[in-house]
């Protein structure tokens, strides 16, 4: 997580963080009026912005994603679950460039070869699933909404924006930003990277943890699976306790994987 803390010492990265957050909020807020599932989430074309900003600005894009979402939440109803929303969006802006660095072998994210497209889809999916898991898990822990209500909608919403909008924006913007030496690798060449083997281990932990957490969160939150080894009082709606006991270890595994990337 070296880059996430080190970027605050770099004025240019602070500005890029603010720009990422403002762009995200600026697209997010007008669409608050277009509900995707009423009362749960709205249509979010803005969700393409964190992915784009992640590839361009790295850690500044990640913080921008978290701050931009928080600003947007103030206009659609802030709640204690927004703390989870903050970290979910931090992960959504953090994972794309970190995963891409591990699997891309130095390619730019604008390559149009089938292999690069497959890697791009995998990268977006890895970021999206952890984002959805964190929000669904957090809201279910606080007994505000079931995991299944948010966990799946966020994946659909984020993937739609990430796959339909962000490639076009990246193709247009990435070469210009690279030419202007505003990419995170140019703005912060001092960022240290972990050994490759450790980063692959982190990726495996991230993908495994988030996938299992997503499946278990869905099964538990709608009562499709009531684990026999848990006492009855834990297996009752709103299923916050069973989600806390069973899903949390996999969430921590995924977060640990993210840290190792």
């Amino acid at each position: 997580m070296n880059g996430l803390t080190a970027m605050w010492r770099n004025t240019r990265m602070v500005v890029l963080c603010s720009i990422s957050a403002a762009l995200y909020a600026a697209v997010l807020i007008p669409f608050k009026a277009v509900p995707f599932i009423p009362g749960v989430t709205e249509l979010r074309p803005a969700n393409a912005i964190p992915v784009v900003c992640s590839f361009l600005f790295g850690p500044a894009g990640a913080w921008g994603s978290a701050i931009g979402n928080t600003i947007g939440d103030f206009f659609g109803g802030a709640s204690p679950a927004d703390i989870f929303g903050f970290f979910a969006n931090l992960a959504y802006g953090w994972i794309p460039y970190k995963v891409w660095e591990v699997i891309s072998h130095g390619d730019a994210p604008i390559s149009r070869s089938p292999r690069a497209i497959a890697k791009f889809v995998f990268t977006c999916l890895a970021a999206t699933v952890l984002c959805a898991d964190l929000v669904g898990w957090g809201e279910n822990l606080l007994a505000l909404r079931p995991f299944a209500a948010l966990g799946n909608v966020i994946i659909l919403n984020n993937m739609l924006a990430a796959l339909i909008l962000s490639p076009f924006i990246l193709i247009a913007v990435y070469p210009r930003v690279r030419q202007g030496r505003l990419l995170y690798s140019d703005a912060m060449p001092e960022i240290k990277r972990r050994p490759m083997a450790l980063r692959w281990l982190g990726l495996a932990m991230l993908v495994g943890g988030e996938a299992v957490a997503w499946v278990l969160g869905n099964l538990l939150s709608i009562g499709w699976w009531t684990p026999a080894f848990l006492p009855a009082w834990m297996n009752a709606a709103p299923y916050d306790k069973s989600v806390a006991v069973i899903v949390s270890p996999f969430m921590f595994l995924a977060i640990a994987g993210m840290v190792l990337l």
Binding site: V14, I19, L23, A26, V27, L165, F168, A172, V173, R176
Partner: peptide
């Protein structure tokens, strides 16, 4: 959704032009 890329790109580039000067 795809049509909004024609809006996002100029906004993005306009924002980035400000970044260096602002820093």
């Amino acid at each position: 959704l795809r049509r909004y890329t024609t809006v996002s790109i100029p906004v993005f580039m306009g924002a980035l032009r400000k970044a260096n000067n602002m820093a």
